[in-house]
Design a protein around this nucleic acid. Sequence first.
DNA 1: TTATAAATGTTATATTATTACATACTGTTA
DNA 2: TAACAGTATGTAATAATATAACATTTATAA
Lengths: 132, 132
Amino acid sequence: MQKEHNLSKNQKIIFDLIDKSRGPMKAYSILFNVQKKGIKAPLQVYRALDKLVEIGKIHKIESRNAFIACQNSSCQVSKATAFSICESCENVSEISNSKLSRYLSNFSDSSGMKYSKYNLEFFGLCKKCKSK
Amino acid sequence: MQKEHNLSKNQKIIFDLIDKSRGPMKAYSILFNVQKKGIKAPLQVYRALDKLVEIGKIHKIESRNAFIACQNSSCQVSKATAFSICESCENVSEISNSKLSRYLSNFSDSSGMKYSKYNLEFFGLCKKCKSK
DNA sequence: TTATAAATGTTATATTATTACATACTGTTA
DNA sequence: TAACAGTATGTAATAATATAACATTTATAA
């Protein structure tokens, strides 16, 4: 059963914006877009983003400093993420491939480290950009 | 056969510093450390870093905005990287596991994307921090 | 040698993210 | 309900990360 997270006012405003957006959004672009709703300062945005990442409603695309809504409705905690990123048009999408996630979640090596989380980013050219 | 890259002056200074360092280094910490060698501006550092990443002598740890020397002597192009990161002590090491890299390099899905590169970051607790 | 690419130097500025401090809201439990 | 703890908000200032623009120099190769 999924824990219901009642988003606060700012969290809801910011999540809705990201969720409606086509692609990943950057923090200051989010800020610009929510200023008419009364969110004026970067910190207000970053705080909401931090929380939304923590509860798995959004993910951060680390290589792009951008945020995207989680596409996987059952994913409430952000501990296993994989994305494909087109280096030409910068289109990003979340990969949900159970074989891949199983493989990575079970990965362990001789380092003695206990892995609890991973983030994977694939880069390349999307279908459209490939054919140009 | 590995293409020999003759590093330029700044590239060499910066690579040597990162290579000697125990862990990942951040750009402005690098800058601070090479100022006595005549490298005065951020851009000089970033340009060298960009080139070093491009030729695979160093890798960027995206989630930490930090740079680490490549541990894999045969790796001349930075297109397949995997790291383990301790969330407590922030120790980072490069994972070289041929099974993992083979698995990821061969990964493809139904999106039609042609993947040419990936970056994977595992998070958790290292041996030392686990036992604390 | 000439021309082309790669690297450097320098100043300014853009972008991303956090510190510090004060206040208010929400839910729990004595 | 009062008291408390935890979470969220507001605001100003500033820190940390990264790039733009332009002038010059050095290395490489035709």
